[in-house]
């Protein structure tokens, strides 16, 4: 793999993302909503005389759960299928470069664009919170929150790439991406809620089942980071704390890594063996 080539493609991909109106829309939405949360935190600290960063962080987690998968799935789904649809992929692959370089370059470029979007949102709201004096009591936990959101970005980007590698048209890929977003964000959890109530699932089973949804994993990891406990999550959270305790961060990060790597590798394999340009 030639790093110069990868970097050239990554820069191109980043450049395209910054010109992609969906990407800009999501970024603006993310910044706007996180600013809104900062404003709420400020009005809260105005009344109480101090801020409760835990609640602000909880709202940020909620916001990340909603927007980050949407953003990453959409750009990921467009990545390969979009160029294929515009026929530029065949031209690109006809250059003296390998498919691995194209894939890694695109992944890296989109990763950078999502990173920029994420740190812009977190940076601006962090700035507002800091100036207002209602920021995190432990700045590290804020950075870790950003890091976890970024990990979720990578997971969703990989899933998006997989969708993109399996479809030929960008429109279809984005449609499937949006459906997956719905599934990850709403349908999966609603289904699990229904199952938990209807089947009287034991809480350990519920906890392990919830690890199947990377959004849940991000959420639990983020709550653990901010609160140092999962008691907010009721019996299942308390069970997890008592049963796995200090191993939990490792479990969460491990699951996120698996979620980022497996679809990403599968997408590459599909792309590398694709016969359809």
């Amino acid at each position: 793999m030639d790093l110069h080539t990868v970097w050239t493609i990554a820069r191109k991909e980043l450049r395209d993302a910054l010109h992609n109106r969906w990407f800009l829309l999501y970024t603006l939405a993310f910044i706007g909503l996180s600013l809104g949360l900062s404003y709420l935190a400020m009005s809260g600290s105005g009344i109480a005389g101090f801020a409760g960063f835990g609640r602000t962080a909880a709202s940020l987690i909620n916001l990340v759960l909603l927007i980050v998968p949407l953003m990453a799935l959409t750009v990921g789904a467009q990545s390969l299928a979009g160029e294929q649809e515009r026929k530029t992929m065949a031209y690109l692959l006809a250059q003296p470069i390998t498919r691995l370089e194209v894939y890694v370059g695109k992944y890296l470029g989109l990763t950078m664009s999502l990173f920029a979007s994420l740190v812009l949102g977190f940076g601006i709201s962090g700035l507002v919170l800091a100036i207002d004096g209602s920021g995190a009591s432990d700045p590290w936990s804020y950075l870790i929150l950003v890091g976890l959101a970024f990990a979720l970005c990578l997971v969703m980007l990989s899933v998006g790439f997989l969708v993109s590698a399996l479809t030929r048209r960008a429109g279809v890929a984005v449609g499937i991406g949006l459906f997956l977003w719905l599934a990850f964000v709403f349908l999966g959890d609603l289904g699990m809620m229904g199952t938990a109530v209807a089947m009287r699932m034991p809480i350990n089973g519920l906890f392990w089942l919830s690890l199947a949804n990377p959004l849940q994993v991000f959420k639990m990891a983020a709550i653990l980071n901010i609160n140092a406990t999962l008691d907010v999550l009721g019996p299942a959270g308390i069970f997890a704390m008592q049963e796995y305790g200090s191993k939990l961060p490792l479990i969460f990060i491990g699951v996120l890594v698996i979620w980022a790597v497996l679809p990403g590798v599968a997408a590459f394999v599909r792309f590398d063996t694709s016969n359809d340009f």
Binding site: L18, M112, A130, I131, A136, Y142
Partner: peptide, 26 residues
């Protein structure tokens, strides 16, 4: 009270990182 200066540093670091990537992309 939260550590204002440190929080500012963290926020500015994040914004600096964003600026680096955005500059690169443009």
């Amino acid at each position: 009270p939260p550590p204002v200066a440190l929080n500012l540093v963290v926020a500015l670091l994040l914004l600096a990182a964003a600026t680096v990537v955005l500059t690169l992309g443009l």
